[in-house]
Simulated scan of single mutants.
Amino acid sequence: MKKDETDASQSYTDAYFEKGHIWLKIRQTLAAILGWVGVIVPILVTVISAVGYYQPHVLGFWHTHVGIDELQFFGLLILFAFVMSAIFTISMAIIQNRKRARVVEQWPTFDPIMQKQRKNELNDFMDERFGDAKFRQSVRNYDVQPEKNLDTDEFKRLFRHEKVGDQDD
């Protein structure tokens, strides 16, 4: 396969995985390693210090109760955030399931065949009332005669025969 054909079939390419680009690979790899060090080191310091506070034989980075109090405070804060997120998520799931159940009971709410028929009837109505579509789209100014103005419920009356037929079923 040619390079142009490969590029056309892929929606995303990354120069990191292509041949060459050695400085890009080195720079991005170092950035990734530094990022992971920035995540892992604080976690290790916190865990080792917390264990060292309760286990005297483990050498921790800090030995005061202030660090443990902060750790417990952040633990409670994270627990509170988790509980609130869980309540929100579960309640939204229940609401969505109830809405979905109501929609499924009313299924089908969209009938593509009926929609196509309505579109055709509407196009015929507009052609009869205001001229064919090509004329309507090409004219710059069009004066509508008073007798050709649409009533407020014109389209409702146009499709009324469908509702009568649906009630008979």
Rank of each mutant, 00 (worst) to 15 (best):
A81K: 13
A81R: 10
V83W: 11
M84D: 15
M84L: 14
M84T: 12
M84N: 12
S85E: 10
A86T: 11
A86L: 13
F88N: 10
I90N: 04
I90S: 04
S91R: 08
M92D: 08
M92N: 09
A93G: 06
I94C: 03
I95D: 02
I95K: 03
Q96H: 05
N97V: 01
N97A: 06
R98Y: 05
R98I: 00
R98L: 04
K99C: 01
K99V: 00
R100M: 02
R100E: 07
R102S: 06
R102W: 02
R102V: 02
V103L: 10
E105V: 06
E105H: 11
E105A: 14
E105I: 09
Q106N: 13
Q106V: 04
P108S: 04
P108Q: 04
T109I: 11
T109D: 08
F110A: 06
D111I: 01
D111R: 06
D111E: 03
D111S: 01
D111F: 02
I113K: 10
M114L: 08
K116C: 00
Q117N: 04
Q117I: 01
Q117A: 04
R118T: 01
K119S: 12
K119E: 11
E121Q: 03
E121M: 06
E121S: 00
L122K: 07
L122F: 10
L122N: 00
N123M: 08
N123S: 07
D124E: 07
F125M: 02
F125T: 00
D127R: 01
E128Y: 13
E128N: 12
E128M: 11
F130Y: 14
G131K: 09
G131H: 07
G131A: 07
A133S: 15
K134M: 12
K134T: 15
R136Q: 14
R136G: 09
Q137S: 14
Q137R: 14
S138K: 13
S138P: 03
V139T: 15
R140I: 13
R140K: 15
N141A: 13
Y142L: 14
Y142S: 09
Q145I: 06
Q145Y: 08
P146G: 06
P146A: 10
E147I: 05
N149K: 14
L150A: 08
D151S: 11
D151G: 09
T152W: 09
F155L: 13
K156Y: 15
R157W: 14
L158I: 07
L158R: 05
L158S: 06
F159V: 01
F159A: 01
R160C: 10
R160K: 15
H161K: 15
